[in-house]
């Protein structure tokens, strides 16, 4: 469904990775993050890089799309690299005035940059290949045990899926309002900060009004269909495990074990 696209990330393609159970994908993402932080030296980072490359290939994601996701982080990555380079102690290889760049610093910087990039790419793999609806379904299923200690798991998941569902709608609505105000000569791109902030009022007021209207209408529609929370509610799409999910779990466990072993040898 076209409405499922959130933030322009999820691209519906039919690949083994897209078909994986969302619960498995969520767990694998967590496993990947843990493994990434356990990684110590070139070999374990190579393993992580291989994982991302293989999954990207299997999911038929264009590398360009992943790099696009990294773009907003360029400054953070750059600052991290510079700080690590300058503030790690050890053998200096280059001294300029008071700045000492050490060999260890160079390694630390390289690993840190690689870690951030892999972390972002690894999590993007999840959102690129899983629709928001599937994602919340998976989260609800995984958080179910929390229901025992009175955490309203279903309600939280419902709130999340409603929020996700309405992001594209609100974006569309914002576009419309912006166009309508532009048609009346509104100018959002010139003047100082105060003027620009003021220029947002003609957008924000109608947007809030319509968001509240939509919320009212949705609540009414849900009540009309006798929605009363999660108790006894059945699903249209039941999550079910297949052999490919078992394979994925096995691969995830192997990667985690591999990283732990590599770490114990300091690799």
């Amino acid at each position: 469904m076209l409405k499922d696209i959130t933030l322009g990330q999820y691209f519906p393609v039919d690949t083994p990775i897209h078909r994986l159970d969302p619960r498995v994908k969520l767990v694998l993402t967590v496993v990947f993050i843990v493994a990434l932080f356990l990684a110590k030296w070139i070999y374990s980072y190579a393993l992580m890089l291989a994982y991302v490359v293989v999954v990207t290939g299997l999911a038929r994601i264009r590398p360009k799309a992943l790099f696009k996701g990294l773009k907003p982080l360029i400054i953070i990555i750059f600052v991290t690299a510079v700080l690590n380079m300058l503030y790690t102690g050890g053998e200096p290889v280059l001294v300029i005035w008071k700045l000492r760049i050490t060999e260890q610093g160079l390694y630390a910087a390289a690993f840190m940059v690689l870690r951030i990039m892999l972390l972002v790419c690894g999590t993007f793999l999840l959102t690129y290949t899983t629709s928001p609806i599937m994602l919340t379904d998976g989260m609800e299923a995984l958080m179910k045990p929390l229901g025992l200690i009175k955490v309203p798991v279903h309600e939280l998941a419902m709130m999340m899926s409603i929020a996700l569902r309405f992001i594209p709608t609100l974006i569309e609505e914002t576009d419309k309002i912006v166009s309508a105000q532009k048609a009346r000569g509104a100018d959002f791109s010139s003047g100082n900060i105060v003027r620009r902030a003021k220029a947002l009022i003609p957008i924000l007021v109608p947007l809030f009004v319509s968001a509240f209207r939509r919320a009212d209408e949705l609540a009414m529609a849900m009540e009309c269909r006798c929605y009363h929370g999660g108790k006894g509610r059945t699903r249209l799409h039941m999550l079910s495990m297949h052999s490919r999910d078992a394979a994925a779990i096995f691969a995830g466990a192997a990667i985690l074990a591999g990283t732990v072993v590599l770490r114990s040898y300091g690799l």
Binding site: I177, A183, G185, P206, S210
Partner: peptide, 30 residues
């Protein structure tokens, strides 16, 4: 934009001012 006036579908959702007078004057003010 001022010479070619465009009224969108359901234009009532673009109203935002405190009074109708102020809202109608948004265009001329711009």
């Amino acid at each position: 934009r001022f010479k070619v006036g465009l009224v969108f579908q359901y234009p009532e959702y673009q109203l935002f001012e405190e009074t109708v007078f102020k809202d109608i004057s948004f265009g001329p003010k711009n």
